[in-house]
Design a protein around this nucleic acid. Structure first.
Length: 791
DNA sequence: CAGTGAGCGAGCTTCCGCTTGACTT
């Protein structure tokens, strides 16, 4: 017999709370939702007022069984799921599934895991808020209806297995639209003029002309004027400014800062944070709140006062401004403010430190700065130079933490400026005009996409990372780095009385881990925008949230709300199925001058292809990485058909060059050799260079060989150390063995052992796949392989 | 690691939000 059973959502939370409550309380976790709409089928009975059809989720059967048994013998059951829409629904599902009785069931909530908060909650129980539960049911049903009615339209009209949803489709749209803005962007060259001026004590003062010069001639005219001008300080202005610390972390801001400062992907950040949470080092990591508990604020104050002094302390409460925030938890903060560092791997330590400093800084005094701007006029032109510098007069929170931004600009931290006075004459040193280019809007990173989604109220802290993974797995978007292009940049320099013009090379437009749309992403976005305008609207979620709020307040019945959405929506689905054209993103580019046949591009079965001619005689070529259906030109498409290009023969076998999935390569006698980046061009490479590349590859392959046995077994040196290669498969060498000392017998033993293991595993996988669902298992394998590569 | 490119049509795919492990190269 147990006295009290408390059910929370997270097992880590359960452990902590059990300690606070002590004897007489058993604390268990539901591991989130225990019940959901039927996995197969729609799971909603449209005919009967949208009655949801719930089932216990497969992975929760055991949890439910255990909770049921405990609930049966408990005198009182305390449902302590989070205080938000989902949490309320979890409490209600538990109540229903565990067959609890109203007289011995109590609903309690707390926003922070502190002893006081828990005890207060126990002393102030309430009933399940059925209106809030209904709002969750409406949210759930809405998402199911949208997802499960629109996705099949895509299967018919675009490609099987595609998906659409309230959140993911809009996230893809953001990336597609940004890419189109970038394509439409017309880059412009301009000149920026900077100058150096001598001051006392051999220091130089750097200043810049605010005006941009549209052409080389205009810049030259200005510099020529500088040659003969006199420079005078026209004004010096010093203004004190304040800088405030950023609020403590939410999921979204943590993901952004971890990406900028530590280079972690959104899902890596969450995995590391999860570890910290499980070890009791930080509070819950999926939160939209910037609120800190009174306990946290007080201990932070203590730490700051004792280590940095009274002046650095400034306790603050932050208010959450995010649209649709539900604030069931605290902000993400260290559990103990007196622990600046922790044990753990590199990522754990760094992420913890980031959280620690951000939290501490949020409770610290403003930084005080003096911002000085000085204007330098010249005697013969009206565009002056200006120099801006900041001096920190009191560092405040900056002593601990500085927030970063995506577009950081350099600032001059100099007090040189302040020493200048109006009317001072300045001695001109070098003046430079350098050619610049206007920049297109930036592509999204994972983290900046999360920021945008949060601003639009789309998605929740628990779904940001999975959503980004989903749209990548579906092939709508890809995250990659691209090299920039080299451009010639003109620089005009005035030194003494000489003006020199020079040309240097600079790289522009390099992208690091940015999100690009795929052709499929663009085609699907266009299709959905054309036929499901309201769902693709950036305000769709925000408006739905307003209706959900009315349901939560008891002002509207949830079925009525869903009904009003569903009838026009469903009609739209039907008419789209009937009337819309199949969409393959086809574009006619023109005619092939050689054959007179039409040239077009579209999405084929294996991806985007170019096509010359029609019917039986049509010729096909796959598009290259980075080429889009939307932007490829006739010339670029025709160039794809120039491969494979025969170069000649070597050792009696044909040598040809072609372009594959991984870029251009040379093929010779069933061997593949990549072209050398930056040196070889697939269109112009000669037989001689190709042979040289083939020989280079052979040599490097020989370098890799540690041992070769007669029957084809090889021991090779790879990226991750030595391994065995046999029949085109690779085998891991156990760490206990030395690669150089392996005998053929030993190798064969390893090969046999690993093949046996592999077949066993793959058969086990198919068995479980047939039970649960193939998609689920393939998804998990995909995710795990990804994890590996990221490590 | 590596050029492909049709279509008989079984049976399948798909959503968003709560939670953790269990999976591998």
């Amino acid at each position: 017999m147990i006295e009290n059973l408390v059910i929370v959502e997270s097992p880590a939370k359960a452990k902590t709370i059990e300690q606070f409550l002590g004897k007489g309380f058993t604390v268990k976790s539901s591991f989130g939702h225990i019940r959901d709409l039927e996995k197969k089928d729609l799971g909603v009975d449209i005919e009967h007022n949208f009655q949801p059809k719930y089932e216990i989720s497969a992975d929760k059967k055991m949890v439910v069984k255990e909770l049921k048994a405990l609930a049966k013998e408990a005198k009182t059951v305390w449902l302590a799921s989070d205080e938000d829409r989902e949490g309320e629904a979890i409490a209600w599902h538990l109540f229903e599934v565990l067959k609890l009785k109203p007289e011995n069931t109590k609903r309690i909530v707390f926003h922070e895991i502190t002893k006081d908060a828990i005890l207060y909650a126990i002393a102030h129980p309430r009933n399940i808020d059925k209106n809030l539960v209904d709002a969750q049911q409406a949210r759930r049903v809405l998402d199911r209806l949208v997802g499960f009615e629109v996705s099949p339209v895509l299967w018919k009209k675009v490609k099987p297995s595609l998906s659409a949803g309230r959140v993911q489709s809009v996230a893809v749209r953001l990336i597609v639209e940004r890419e189109r803005e970038i394509n439409a962007f017309k880059e412009q060259a301009y000149y920026r003029v900077t100058g150096q001026f001598a001051t006392a004590a051999h220091a130089t003062l750097k200043a810049e002309v605010q005006e941009r010069f549209a052409s080389k001639e205009a810049a030259l005219a200005y510099i020529e004027a500088c040659r003969d001008a006199e420079f005078t300080v026209a004004s010096v202005e010093t203004k004190p400014t304040l800088r405030k610390p950023a609020p403590p972390f939410t999921t979204s801001t943590l993901q952004q800062e971890a990406s900028r400062k530590l280079g972690l992907s959104v899902s890596q950040t969450m995995a590391v944070a999860q570890k910290l949470y499980e070890h009791g080092l930080i509070t819950y990591m999926r939160t939209d709140s910037v609120n800190l508990s009174a306990l946290a604020i007080n201990t932070a104050k203590e730490v700051i006062r004792t280590t940095l002094g009274e002046r650095y302390s400034q306790p603050r409460n932050y208010a959450t401004k995010t649209k649709g925030a539900q604030e069931a938890h605290e902000a993400i903060r260290p559990t103990y403010m007196n622990r600046p560092t922790i044990e753990g791997d590199r990522n754990e330590q760094q992420l913890y430190e980031l959280i620690y400093k951000r939290t501490l800084a949020s409770q610290m005094a403003n930084a005080e700065l003096e911002r000085t701007s000085i204007v330098i006029s010249l005697s013969n032109r009206k565009e002056p130079f200006t120099a801006i510098g900041e001096v920190i007069t009191f560092d405040g929170f900056l002593r601990v933490y500085m927030e970063s931004y995506d577009d950081e600009t350099e600032d001059e931290h100099t007090d040189l400026l302040q020493k200048k006075k109006k009317g001072d004459r300045l001695e001109r040193q070098a003046i430079t005009a350098q050619e610049q280019f206007t920049q297109h809007p930036p592509r999204y990173t994972e983290a900046s996409l999360v920021k945008k989604m949060e601003a639009l109220g789309i998605g929740r802290p628990s779904t940001y990372a999975p959503t980004i993974t989903t749209i990548q797995n579906r092939g709508y978007i890809i995250r990659e780095s691209r090299e920039g292009v080299e451009k010639e940049v003109v620089t005009l320099t005035l030194k003494g009385k000489d003006i020199k013009s020079s040309v240097s090379k600079k790289t522009f437009g390099a992208e690091k881990k940015k999100l690009f749309p795929s052709d499929m992403g663009m085609v699907v976005t266009d299709f959905l925008s054309a036929h499901f305008k309201n769902i693709m609207d950036y305000n769709f979620t925000a408006e739905a949230e307003e209706s959900l709020d009315r349901v939560a307040e008891g002002k509207e019945e949830w079925q009525k709300m869903i009904g009003e959405f569903y009838s026009p929506f469903h009609e739209n689905v039907e008419s789209t199925l009937k009337n819309s054209e199949r969409n393959s993103g086809e574009r006619l580019l023109g005619t092939d001058p050689a054959s007179g046949e039409p040239v077009s591009v579209r999405i084929g079965r294996f991806g985007p292809i170019a096509q010359i001619g029609e019917g039986e005689q049509a010729r096909y070529a796959g598009l290259q990485k980075g080429q889009l259906l939307e932007t490829i030109t006739l010339e670029e498409a025709l160039a794809l058909f120039k491969f494979p290009r025969k170069l000649g023969e070597y050792e009696g076998k044909e040598v040809s060059v072609a372009i594959g999935r991984f870029g251009p390569y040379i093929k010779h006698n069933n061997a593949f050799v990549s072209l050398k980046k930056g040196e070889d061009e697939p269109g112009t490479i000669t037989l001689e260079t190709a042979i040289a590349r083939i020989e280079e590859k052979r040599e490097s392959d020989r370098q890799k060989q540690i041992r070769v046995f007669d029957n084809g077994v090889q021991i090779l040196n790879g990226r991750y150390g030595p391994y065995i290669c046999f029949n085109k498969s690779n085998y891991k060498i156990p760490k206990t063995l030395k690669a150089e000392e392996l005998t053929l017998e030993k190798c064969m033993e390893i090969i046999e052992k690993e093949t046996a293991q592999k077949t066993k595993k793959s058969s086990a996988k198919t068995a479980s796949a047939s039970k649960t669902k193939a998609a689920a298992s393939s998804k998990t394998t995909k995710r795990s392989t990804k994890k590996k590569t990221e490590k």
